[in-house]
Design a protein around this nucleic acid. Sequence first.
DNA 1: ACCTGAACACCGTTCAAGT
DNA 2: ACCTGAACACCGTTCAAGT
Lengths: 234, 234
Amino acid sequence: MAEPQDRAVRRRAGRPPRALLGTDKITRAALKLVELEGYRGLTMAALARRLNVAPSALYNHVRSKQDVLLLVEEDLMGRVEVSGFATDPWPDAVRAWAWSYRNVFARHAPLIPVIAVLPVTDAPRTLMMYEAVTTGFARAGWPEDQIVDAIVALESFIFGSALDVGAPADIFDTGTLAAQTPSFTAAVRRRAAAAQDNGAPGAAESDRAFALGLEALLAGLSAGLAPGSAGAPG
Amino acid sequence: MAEPQDRAVRRRAGRPPRALLGTDKITRAALKLVELEGYRGLTMAALARRLNVAPSALYNHVRSKQDVLLLVEEDLMGRVEVSGFATDPWPDAVRAWAWSYRNVFARHAPLIPVIAVLPVTDAPRTLMMYEAVTTGFARAGWPEDQIVDAIVALESFIFGSALDVGAPADIFDTGTLAAQTPSFTAAVRRRAAAAQDNGAPGAAESDRAFALGLEALLAGLSAGLAPGSAGAPG
DNA sequence: ACCTGAACACCGTTCAAGT
DNA sequence: ACCTGAACACCGTTCAAGT
């Protein structure tokens, strides 16, 4: 583990005999850093420190911090479960995919606004995920021109739900305004009670909301394959 | 519009005869700044410049920049359409609410990760929105212990969809990897063609995905009110 | 209580100099 | 090509001094 060249002994300037960095090393260091200190701790300076180089050295391998985030995102996409789309019934495959997708990014919430608008061009793992999902939809008989919309709709729900996992347990505490919001306050109380009845303590609530929405989406998408059912107001 | 005291003429230190700031003025200035320069332009320094004060003066009214974001969020929540819940059939009320909610926050995407985990305590407009939605659900016959989960599921979809609105038109361009992702590449092409057939140019695609998902959720939620239909794997 | 102005401890990024 | 080290133009936030 300990490099022969420790950074306590400082390296002199100039190109080293063999490159010290590379996108894979940067990716692994970034992931480790996020695991240890969260996204607040992911700074170019901290990343460089972990890799025993000067911050400016990173810019020989990435064009910006945004590039580092893309490297991390690509790695995470490879962890999303898509194997079911080749073999399982459509609802089962989507369920496994959706739960793993949400769980992977729940721990990487700050990445979500980035991914949601990120072009897939030159992101091979991300593309392979979409390819697997698409073939699964086609195999289940989805019309080709609706597949991407359906994936985007499911993904939107997954991203939003991944953010919800990070919500504090008391997010819906109505506090001093409880008297002005009687229906909502009562519903919140009932929800907490229902979530506790089934055993688990805190994360149970976002799991239940995710399950409810996912099953509704699955049922609605299955039922609504007939053309021209939806229209957009405003 | 022009204050008698212009900042070209500088103010001397010390408490002014009447307070120059206030949370409402800060909120309005922040919204204007975001409208003009986006969230990248929303810095404490820029905000102070707009208000003709020193940056440090802001800290007499907010504890942090995060506080400023919360002020903005509260203002935006007041713009979400909830009037339908008092009068309209449940699906119509949810539709109007969901579309307006998505449209408001599509232009404030950087706020979404903040809102998603933000306690509602002491956020009166946000709470009033939840109260209106909850009464609408109760009126439609929803069991009280499932209402909050259903709202959270819908909100998750809305937040994710609001992020999707900001995606570039070519987000699914498979580029040099098109040959390795034939199914997905074909589906993307078909989607673009279908979206153009109906008239509109670019935003049409996220609108279609949102409509598809929302209608599926509405149908699935309506159908799935029977207990114990969903279960969570892994 | 509520302002100014100076200061602090960071950021991400650029670039000349070195091998 | 790929590193170091110095420098730049910012950040958000704190705090003494002033009225």
